[in-house]
Design a protein around this nucleic acid. Structure first.
Length: 497
DNA sequence: GCTGCCTGTAGTCGGTATTA
DNA sequence: TAATACCGACTACAGGCAGC
């Protein structure tokens, strides 16, 4: 305590439980203002003023000279401010406020002057004490309002910052969350609140409880996934309160009720693709699956939808399973694997009546079979398995002409992975046929890159023009896809065709 | 208040990596 | 090589919530 500044001793003297300290304070005020020897009526008025003064000052100082994080009074002064010696918190207490020059015409009780004064200047107090107590009470009320607003902002922002840093969320969330906090408090006490008037009058929620709920809601609205259990533990708020007020706070937010859910889910898909280095191929396939299944799976939370879609793509493409575990993926999205398993069974296995499903990973083949029944993905791996079993080998090339989309299966040239300009590929399997008369539209190659010897699946999808000569197709109507087959490490690499 | 659905939790099992 | 730790997966069960 000896490290605190001289004027902080007033805080010690102002301790209301110590009569000696009170007397010392009263004497101090009395001497300063030279009002100690007036008539009894005036003494009573002064005493009441001093008492209310003391209470007002105490209220103002109580939070500012305590560490907002741990509540300790042991603050260490340094060159820029004060630091709590227990937790290292830095209360927002400036040593001196020199930003605003004093002008004699200003009165410290005026709102919007920006002065951090508490009880006015000595001259002002003198004039007030010598006049009427109503004026004094009015001043005190105004000062109290401003002190509360400052204390509220300091405490709220400190708590928000503490929780954001604990959850490793961007510090840029602080201001919008603080604005939302003020809006929520206004809303809770407003006439138009959804709460009944008699309840509204009694609503007084400690910031300690309200802020974590608000942070959760803000992250939910903006598509950020947080560990709510960690948030509750960090803030020290009970689960029952948290759940109840989360619903109450979320309800009035039109922004949340009418949010673009699909857009938020897609943002989750992108985060998964980046986090697990699955590449844009995973991302686009997940979006395709999401769009196809959206009507069936939309009746649940955004994170569960994202987890369901990502899990399905991972289970469908075996090369992804080397990079990501389903449980890890679910953990990343803040959901449980059991939830995804129940969704898969409900929305995929049961509708398509696929037999033999036991569990998510163990029955990956069953899941894959059900996904193929959606009709949106090519059955690459099954087809290529058959290619490899056939043992067809040979060297092929293809050329694509500018004027017409002509595909010749005798010609094959692929660009090697890694962006090299060109390189010959050795075909390890070949499947399919095309015929402009019959309309067969897909050709699948299994090729082996000579650079890293990885098997790569190449698919050409060519809508055939009825009646056209064999091998001639509509211009710009062909599209191609590539797939790695087995054992690919690292992000998938696409081979441009 | 009941019911069914959705979601999360905790216990358990099995496979794999690590260490003595 | 055996013991141990860790991780992923599975499953039963409990709690919350909305609809009736």
């Amino acid at each position: 305590m000896n490290m605190l500044p001289q004027w902080y001793k007033y805080r010690l003297i102002l301790d209301g439980n110590d009569n000696d300290k009170n007397n010392a304070y009263h004497n101090d005020i009395g001497n300063e203002n030279d009002i100690g020897n007036e008539n009894s009526n005036r003494n009573t008025k002064i005493q009441r003023s001093n008492e209310s003064d003391r209470r007002a000052i105490d209220r103002g100082f109580a939070s500012e000279f305590e560490c907002p994080l741990c509540g300790s009074n042991d603050l260490l002064e340094n060159g820029q401010g004060y630091v709590c010696i227990h937790c290292g918190g830095m209360p927002n207490i400036p040593l001196f406020d020199t930003a605003l020059p004093y002008t004699g015409g200003m009165r410290s009780h005026e709102l919007d002057t920006g002065f951090p004064t508490r009880i006015g200047c000595a001259k002002e107090r003198m004039s007030v004490h010598n006049s009427d107590s109503a004026h004094w009470d009015r001043l005190e009320k105004r000062q109290g309002m401003r002190a509360y607003a400052e204390r509220f902002e300091t405490e709220a922002k400190t708590r928000i910052t503490h929780l954001l840093s604990g959850l490793q969320l961007p510090s840029s969330f602080r201001e919008p969350i603080f604005r939302a906090l003020k809006a929520i408090i206004t809303r809770l006490h407003a006439k138009g609140s959804h709460l009944a008037p008699e309840i509204r009058k009694r609503v007084h929620i400690p910031l300690k409880k309200l802020i974590p709920v608000l942070i959760s809601c803000y992250c939910k609205i903006h598509g950020y996934i947080i560990d709510e259990k960690a948030l509750r533990e960090l803030a020290g708020v009970e689960e029952t309160f948290y759940r109840q007020w989360k619903r109450k706070i979320m309800h009035p937010f039109r922004q949340y009720r009418y949010r673009n859910r699909k857009k938020l889910v897609i943002s989750h898909l992108y985060r998964v693709a980046v986090r697990f280095e699955l590449g844009m191929e995973f991302y686009t396939e997940a979006i395709t699956l999401l769009n196809t299944m959206w009507k069936d799976i939309a009746c649940t939370t955004d994170e569960v939808i994202a987890g369901l879609v990502c899990s399905l793509v991972v289970l469908m493409r075996s090369h992804y399973r080397a990079n990501v575990k389903i449980s890890t993926l679910c953990g990343f999205l803040g959901i449980q694997m059991g939830t995804v398993q129940a969704r898969v069974k409900r929305h995929l296995i049961e509708p398509y009546q696929v037999e033999g499903f036991k569990s998510l990973v163990k029955s990956a083949d069953i899941v894959k079979e059900a996904i193929y029944k959606l009709g949106i993905f090519e059955v690459y791996e099954k087809e290529v398995d058959r290619l490899l079993e056939s043992g067809t080998l040979g060297t092929f090339e293809f050329t694509i002409l500018d004027t017409e989309m002509r595909v010749d299966l005798k010609v094959l040239e692929i660009l090697p992975a890694g962006g090299a300009e060109s390189g010959a590929g050795e075909m390890v399997g070949e499947y399919g046929d095309f015929d402009g008369h019959t309309g067969f539209e897909r050709v699948i190659f299994a090729v082996q890159n000579k650079v890293d010897m990885l098997p790569i699946i190449v698919s050409l999808i060519m809508p055939a023009k009825a009646g056209a000569p064999k091998g001639v197709f509509r211009k710009n109507s062909a599209r191609s896809k590539t797939r790695y087959l087995y054992g690919a490490k690292g992000p998938p690499r696409l081979i441009p065709l």
